[in-house]
Simulated scan of single mutants.
Amino acid sequence: MAALSGYPSGETGLATEELEIELLLEALFQRYGFDYRDYDRQAIRRRLYALMRARGLATVSRLQDRVLHEPGASDALLRALAVPPATLFDDPEQARQLRIVLASCLRASAVPKIWLAECGGAEEAWSLAIMLAEEQLHTRTDIYATAANEQMLDEARNARISLERMEQCKENYRASGGTGNLDDYFEIEDGHAVLASSLRNRINWAQYNLVTDASFNEFQLIVCRRALPDFGPVLRRRVLRLFHESLARFGVLGIDREFDEGDAFGENYQAVFSHQGWYKRVA
């Protein structure tokens, strides 16, 4: 990816840019406690470029100056680096697979727990809650939806969907295998749709940092499909170890892609679907 116009051309410019990215990520960690230093550098660069273009900044150093000195700039950076928000049933194929997983892996548990690690916002959790209701599992299943960014958690707790957008959500819902009436799972508040309180109450929102925090519970299902693609190799191994420590035996792990040969604990899992990144822990 070519450097922005504020850098000299060639290897010197790329080296300068890489150094500035390192310094920005270190500053973000030291000043605000958010650690993106082991994220995939290309993913970081793409998101920094988008933010810099939006703010008319030619170099990463200028962005760092804003982040350290300008009110609100750090929030904008953290939002740019965070997992992109999901929309209701926005990946129908993955939702169909998740329906099968829910039916097969949770029924044997008296009080199953699901962890949406680095959740993509309210609508990802709402989609799961609706699928649990359709499998008659919602009254005894707890969803733990976590994210590192407290601001995004606040938005998730207070999320709403416009009635106009609900029409597209209904199409995605039907494509995902939904056979009911999507409206039945929602309440109308001030002209917007909000997930019914009986389902919202099963979702536990909490701040949690996959980079630094330890295992906090045992789960029958862990899903982390949106954040893992952004992790560098060292961080990916660390997070897969964390998931292994947090997943009950015969629980299911949903990740972004198939295990690589070098992935931590990969030999302890059995594929649920071919080439899809869903695995049952067997050891």
Results as ranks from 00 to 15, higher is better:
9 S>Y: 07
9 S>R: 07
12 T>K: 05
13 G>V: 01
15 A>H: 06
18 E>S: 05
22 E>C: 08
26 E>I: 03
29 F>D: 11
31 R>E: 14
32 Y>I: 14
34 F>I: 07
38 D>A: 03
38 D>N: 00
42 Q>I: 12
45 R>K: 01
50 A>S: 12
55 R>I: 09
56 G>Y: 12
56 G>S: 09
58 A>L: 09
60 V>Q: 05
65 D>I: 12
69 H>F: 10
71 P>F: 00
76 A>F: 10
88 L>G: 11
90 D>Q: 05
91 D>M: 01
92 P>S: 01
93 E>D: 14
94 Q>L: 12
97 Q>T: 14
100 I>R: 02
101 V>K: 02
103 A>D: 01
104 S>Q: 10
105 C>N: 07
109 S>I: 06
112 P>L: 11
114 I>Y: 01
121 G>P: 11
123 E>M: 12
124 E>H: 09
129 A>Y: 05
139 T>K: 03
141 T>H: 06
144 Y>S: 04
149 N>V: 12
153 L>I: 06
154 D>G: 15
155 E>A: 13
159 A>Y: 04
160 R>M: 12
167 E>K: 15
168 Q>F: 00
175 A>T: 03
179 T>A: 14
180 G>Y: 08
183 D>A: 13
189 E>W: 12
189 E>C: 14
189 E>H: 13
191 G>F: 10
197 S>L: 15
202 R>L: 00
211 V>M: 04
215 S>E: 01
217 N>Y: 13
226 R>W: 11
227 A>P: 06
227 A>L: 14
231 F>R: 01
233 P>F: 14
245 E>S: 07
246 S>H: 00
250 F>A: 15
251 G>S: 03
266 G>R: 05
269 Y>K: 11
270 Q>V: 09
277 G>W: 13
279 Y>K: 13
280 K>A: 13
280 K>Q: 14
